[in-house]
């Protein structure tokens, strides 16, 4: 591809703002603010990676690249997960930034180390931990919790595909109720953990959930989280066509449905000396059709889910979120 033919817009990067009216306004960046001056010379995730087609993790890495721009010095820690298999074989890599592969449970600890050296040397480097749900909800929980408690200067991004995808699809504590995995053949019989609630309970400066169907909101959050100091936690629902037994092309739409139905709340929680502020970034339409088709279009829910029960759960969750949001 000849880079000379790429259009670049000389305008400075715009301030991404989340939708002002409602969650439906998702037309991504009609002003064409991708591929402009200020983009990274190399994307965070290079083509030639071995992620499956339609992988949600790839999307969020691309947006992270966009949000960071060329000015931000980044280092990334990735524990055992698809994310550390995707770069391919030594010494080549599909990552266009410095990446450290950590042991499964250690992302937040290794990240802490990188961040401390960076701080000691005024490197002005932003350290990102990029982990799956297994490395976050399960094996990495203690490490993550401790790093959050210490308020390390880390941006922790959990791309949650609700499954141990790298090992072929076993249940994790992020697997939702009813999902069939290779270790829950009749569908999982317990709910997933509420990681955003868990992390915000650490009173860290910033906790947010990101939808890959809502680029404006997500880019704004990524930029905000990159700029902040202290521990920031971002939760991204990441479609896994292989594990979800869904069409690769429909991943974005699945996330959109999960947002529209209220199943996946798009919120952010900020903590400062005054206290906690919970903001609902995208108002769900509580769309029943979206909820139903969300489950129907994924083979992992082939054993059926109890929609009324799930709806009650969604309502309970939103009731408490609204209480916390004060509206």
């Amino acid at each position: 591809m000849n880079s000379d033919t790429i259009k670049t817009n000389v305008n400075p990067l715009p301030e991404y703002s989340s939708c002002s009216t409602c969650g439906i306004n998702n037309e991504p960046m009609l002003d064409g603010n991708m591929q402009r001056e200020g983009d990274r010379n190399e994307p965070i995730l290079r083509p030639g990676n071995t992620n499956c087609g339609g992988c949600g993790m790839s999307v969020i890495l691309n947006w992270l690249s966009l949000a960071a721009g060329s000015e931000t010095r980044l280092q990334m820690v990735i524990p055992a997960c698809c994310g550390i298999v995707t770069p391919g074989k030594f010494p080549n890599s599909a990552y266009g930034l410095p990446v450290v592969a950590s042991t499964f449970a250690s992302a937040a600890a290794v990240g802490t180390g990188l961040a401390h050296t960076a701080e000691l040397n005024n490197d002005n480097t932003r350290v990102i931990c990029f982990a799956g749900d297994g490395g976050t909800y399960d094996i990495g929980m203690a490490t993550l919790s401790a790093a959050a408690e210490r308020n390390e200067d880390l941006l922790y991004i959990c791309y949650d595909n609700e499954i141990y995808g790298n090992t072929g699809g076993q249940r994790s504590s992020a697997t939702p109720l009813g999902a069939v995995t290779t270790t829950t053949q009749f569908g999982k019989d317990v709910n997933k953990k509420d990681i955003v609630a868990i992390m915000s309970a650490h009173r860290i400066p910033y906790t947010a959930s990101l939808s890959i169907a809502h680029p404006n909101d997500s880019l704004a959050k990524l930029k905000k989280a990159l700029a902040m100091k202290g521990f920031r936690f971002l939760h991204v629902l990441s479609p896994c066509p292989t594990g979800w037994k869904s069409e690769p092309s429909e991943g974005i739409e699945l996330v959109r449905k999960s947002v529209k139905s209220g199943l996946f709340p798009i919120i952010e929680i900020e903590n400062d000396e005054v206290g906690e502020t919970l903001t609902i970034n995208i108002e769900p339409e509580m769309c029943e059709e979206s909820l139903r088709t969300y489950f129907e279009s994924q083979g992992r829910f082939k054993r059926g889910v109890d929609i009324p029960e799930i709806t009650r759960g969604i309502e309970r969750n939103w009731k408490s979120l609204r209480l916390r949001a004060g509206k």
């Binding site: 591809m1 033919t5 037309e27 991504p28 960046m29 991708m34 995730l45 790839s58 999307v59 691309n62």
Partner: peptide, 16 residues
């Protein structure tokens, strides 16, 4: 509108 660019998981769509 760049929607294809924004969502392409591979980041391999380029504006000409």
């Amino acid at each position: 509108c760049d929607t294809c660019l924004v969502y392409c998981p591979e980041g391999i769509i380029r504006r000409l």
